[in-house]
Every structure is written in C-alpha cells, then in structure tokens.
Simulated scan of single mutants.
Amino acid sequence: MSNIDIIQYASDAWTTFWTPSFWLPPNITWSDFKDKEDVVYPKFKEICYPVAYSIIVVFIRLIIERYIFMPWGIRKGLKPTKKKMIKNVLLEEIYMKSGERLNQSQLVSLAKQLDWSVRKVEQWIRYRKQQNKPSVLVKLTESGWRFTYYSFAVCYGLWALWDKPWFWNIDECWTNYPHQTVSWDIRLYYVFQLSCYWSMLFSQFVDVKRKDFFEMFIHHLTTILLIIFSYTCNLIRGGSLVLIIHDFSDVFMEAAKMFKYIKWQRGCDFCFGLFFFVWTVTRLIIFPGYLIKNFWLTAPNFMPMFPAYNGLKYLTVVLFLLHIMWTYFILKILQRALLSGKTEKDSRSSSSEASATEDHSDNTASSIRLRK
C-alpha cells in the first residue's frame, strides 16, 4: 500500500468516525455548529488541549504536595524516611523469591541457619515488606493534593453553575438543543476537569496502589469519555451536572484520610460521617433519582435520540454501578465502626501492600479511595 493510499484510507476513516448521524441529532450536521451572534458552540479542538494541560496539573500537584502538605505532615510528627532495617543477604534472597509466603517449617529452617528466633525472622520479613509500601507521609501528601483539587472543583463549579437555569431545573438541559451557547466559565470548567482526570489516569500508575486499581481505571476512563462525548455533542449542560454532583463527597473523604494519617481520630470520624451522608445524598439519591432518570426518561420528550447520546446514557449507568459497589464497602466500614467504636480498615481500597506491622485501627476509613 502506497503512502497516498494510506493517507486516503486515514482520511476516509476520519470522515466516517465524524459522521453526523452518530454524533448529532437527525437533520443536524457539523455545519450547523458554526458560531452565531447569540450562540457559541463547543469546538472539539478545545477538548484536546487538556491532554497537554494535564502535565501542568502534575507540576502543580508536585508543588502542593512538596511545599504545603509534606511540611505540614512533618510538623505533625510524620517521618519523611522509613526506619532502617538490618540487611541480610540470605533473607533478602528468600524474600525476593517467595515474599512473605513462607510456611512454619521454612521459618524454622531459616531461624536455625541464621541462629535467630523464629519471631525475629518473621519480624524481618514484616519490616522488609513495609519497605515496599509508601510511607504515611506520602499518603498524606496524595490526599492533600486530592483534597485541594476537589475543594477547588466544588467551589468553581458552584460559582460557574449557580446562575445557570439548568442547575435549578434539569429540563433546561434539553431546551433548544443542540443550539445552546456555551459560556466561557463552563468551557473553563470542562477543560479544568478533563485536565485533572487525564492527570489522575496517568498518575494512578505511580500513586499508592489500591485494591480497586482496575475499578478506578475504569472509572477515570468512563469519566473522560463522558466529558469528551458531552462536549463534542454540546450536551455540556447535563455533563456539568454530572461532574459537580460527584465532587462534593470527595472533599470530606480526603479530609478524613488526612486526619487519620496525623492521628486525629475525632476529626477523621466527623469527616467520614459527613462523607457518608453527602455520598448517600449525591451519588445514591440525586444522581440516579434525578439525573439518570431525567437523561433516560425526560430528555426524549425534548429532542430526538441519536447514538452518541445513547452512549452517554450508558456511561452514567456504569458510574452508578461503581457507586453501588463502593457503597457496599463503605457499609462494611460502618459495620466495623459500630463494633469497634471508631472507623477501621477500609476493606476495599487500603494499599494492597499494607504492612502487617501496622495496627489494625491504623488502616481506616480515611484510606478510602472513592472517586467519581
């Protein structure tokens, strides 16, 4: 195949991908999305910029973590370095081969070879495992960054949406669709959110590893697709409501985690209680009972359906199913809290390499990693 054929094939594929019959309502073409005096339409190129902007977000995150939350954590008594451990060539070799999966007979054998007690061998393996996981200070800085991001997202989102008619009446999301103007503040809100979600998708591979890594990856990818699809189809009104409704609970969740890391249990319990209340109201009541219901049942009364919109509807359902799964784990935390008198280990998303030397109560609800 010649270069000309390849270029022609790529051009045909691009044209097919952008077919109006998929992305737009019937009898609407891309030429109808040209700006008018009273209507400014979204441009697809604007939604491509956040991929590059995510790099800037990463640098901002590093600055906030290093110069704000790391010094704060150190002042609160968290150690910037881990406790040094005794180096042992034999145990290091065994650990690299089998990790902590050693039976009692193997432990006894190693203890005899080293002239150690079995308990000392077990302790060495626990300490060695602890070296592979991030310190509490690192976890604090990560939560501090996410707390900053979610707090700003909520504040800016409320400011941008407060005077918008669809914020108070969901039916306004479909009025005069697709000829709805997009103001600069809503454009900025979308670009900011997408930039942060791209950065979270990339940084997930270097952040503290959680048991729900795959679920979070699906969640971030689903949200990115929802933002891109809704922006391309000018379904920004509905998309902006989905975005802001998911930000509220995360502010309290990250605050609870930070308080737990600095060992302020009362603050952790209080924020976790607020988190659970806000989570229930926003993600289990408002999101399915108002937004998803309106998207599925009310929107068809205002406009004809088309494939891209149907895809968006199913993406919201994917998000809600993730919420149900995470709610199950939250309820397990609450059950333990009622039994122990305080919030305890998060069975869903504590680090998959959590140290066996940590006290059970140190693995708390504040280590929840619920996202949008």
Rank of each mutant, 00 (worst) to 15 (best):
144 G>Q: 06
139 K>F: 08
167 F>R: 07
115 D>P: 08
125 I>Q: 07
142 E>V: 12
190 Y>P: 01
118 V>P: 09
112 K>F: 04
146 R>E: 13
146 R>L: 14
177 Y>P: 07
188 L>N: 05
173 C>Q: 03
150 Y>R: 14
179 H>F: 12
129 K>G: 15
196 C>N: 05
119 R>I: 09
146 R>Y: 12
179 H>A: 07
163 D>P: 08
144 G>R: 07
103 N>L: 05
111 A>L: 07
126 R>W: 03
127 Y>T: 05
105 S>N: 12
130 Q>P: 02
135 S>L: 14
143 S>F: 13
166 W>G: 04
171 D>R: 09
123 Q>P: 04
147 F>W: 14
120 K>P: 01
120 K>C: 00
175 T>I: 11
200 M>F: 11
159 W>T: 12
105 S>A: 13
129 K>C: 04
189 Y>K: 08
125 I>E: 09
200 M>K: 01
184 W>C: 01
134 P>I: 09
112 K>Q: 15
108 V>D: 14
123 Q>Y: 11
186 I>W: 01
133 K>D: 14
111 A>W: 05
191 V>A: 09
190 Y>K: 02
157 G>M: 11
180 Q>E: 05
112 K>N: 14
167 F>Q: 06
110 L>R: 10
185 D>A: 00
125 I>W: 06
164 K>L: 10
174 W>A: 13
174 W>V: 02
103 N>I: 03
198 W>E: 03
127 Y>P: 00
188 L>W: 04
145 W>P: 13
197 Y>R: 03
122 E>G: 09
181 T>L: 02
186 I>D: 02
119 R>N: 13
118 V>S: 10
106 Q>G: 08
120 K>A: 10
190 Y>R: 05
194 L>W: 00
134 P>N: 10
180 Q>V: 10
133 K>F: 08
149 Y>E: 15
125 I>K: 14
185 D>T: 00
164 K>S: 02
145 W>T: 08
194 L>P: 00
141 T>D: 03
199 S>E: 09
188 L>Y: 10
143 S>R: 15
168 W>T: 09
143 S>L: 15
193 Q>Y: 06
117 S>M: 04
176 N>E: 07
190 Y>H: 06
173 C>G: 02
175 T>Q: 11
104 Q>N: 13
118 V>L: 01
171 D>N: 12
106 Q>D: 12
186 I>M: 03
178 P>W: 04
163 D>H: 15
135 S>Y: 01
133 K>T: 15
137 L>W: 11
199 S>V: 03
138 V>N: 12
116 W>V: 07
125 I>G: 04
143 S>H: 15
143 S>P: 06
122 E>L: 11
179 H>M: 01
121 V>D: 07
136 V>W: 06
116 W>H: 11
170 I>A: 02
114 L>S: 13
199 S>P: 01
123 Q>G: 04
191 V>E: 01
193 Q>M: 02
135 S>Q: 07
147 F>Y: 13
123 Q>L: 10
157 G>S: 15
175 T>W: 06
179 H>L: 00
174 W>Y: 10
195 S>L: 06
168 W>Q: 06
130 Q>M: 11
185 D>M: 01
133 K>R: 15
189 Y>F: 14
183 S>W: 01
182 V>W: 00
134 P>G: 12
129 K>M: 07
173 C>E: 00
160 A>P: 11
115 D>W: 01
170 I>L: 14
146 R>D: 05
151 S>N: 09
